[in-house]
Amino acid sequence: MAEAAAIALTALDRKILRALQEDGRMTVQAIAERVGLSASPCLRRIRQMERAGIIAGYSAVVEQKAVGLPVSVFISIRLERQRSHELDAFGAAISRWPEVMECYLMTGQFDFLLRVVCADLGAYEQFLRERLTQVEGVASIESSFSLGQVKYSRVLPL
């Protein structure tokens, strides 16, 4: 990832990235036409951005309700102490749990903010009792349930 800083994105690179973010299955030919390039230089730019770590990967966006995971819970965690090894230990513990979709180290009142998905309230209770409350050093857990999603985007404003 150190290489990413060495690459200055051009306006053309940004157009390519916008196209890929909007439709990751778009062919190189379609992207090239959209941004006004021929396919070979377009592919070269894409490969360069992949090697530099600017393009981190490709994936399908799956609708969580459609696969039986309609509940989103935002969990604020405060640790007993904020020493580096304790922050790392908490991060290592939660990184193994597939229910945790996102985790952020925070400033302010709480140390971590998590987004967890689950099938229902019972599944969340099980996650809370069997996993989250078992992590050493957790001082407090505050859960907020999402009533609905107003906006969700993985497209960066390039």
Rank of each mutant, 00 (worst) to 15 (best):
E3I: 06
A5P: 00
A6G: 11
I7K: 01
T10W: 04
A11V: 03
L12V: 15
I16R: 01
R18Y: 09
A19R: 07
Q21P: 03
D23P: 05
G24F: 09
R25M: 06
T27L: 08
Q29I: 10
A30R: 08
A32Y: 12
E33Y: 06
R34H: 15
R34Y: 08
V35S: 09
S38E: 13
P41A: 02
R45V: 05
Q48D: 15
E50Q: 15
I55L: 06
Y58G: 04
Y58H: 14
S59F: 08
V62D: 15
Q64R: 06
Q64S: 09
K65C: 04
G68P: 05
P70A: 08
V71K: 05
V73A: 11
F74G: 03
S76G: 07
I77P: 00
E80P: 06
E80N: 12
R81Q: 11
S84Y: 04
H85Q: 14
H85V: 08
D88S: 13
D88N: 13
A89P: 04
F90V: 03
A92W: 02
A93D: 08
I94R: 01
I94D: 07
S95Y: 04
R96G: 01
P98I: 02
V100A: 00
E102G: 09
Y104R: 08
L114C: 02
R115K: 15
V116Y: 00
V116D: 02
C118F: 00
L121H: 13
Q126C: 08
Q126R: 13
Q126G: 07
L128F: 12
E130K: 01
Q134H: 09
Q134Y: 01
V135L: 04
E136S: 13
A139N: 04
S140I: 02
I141R: 01
S144G: 13
S146L: 07
G148A: 14
G148C: 07
S153H: 06
S153M: 10
R154F: 11
V155N: 08
L156E: 10
L158M: 14
L158D: 13
L158K: 02
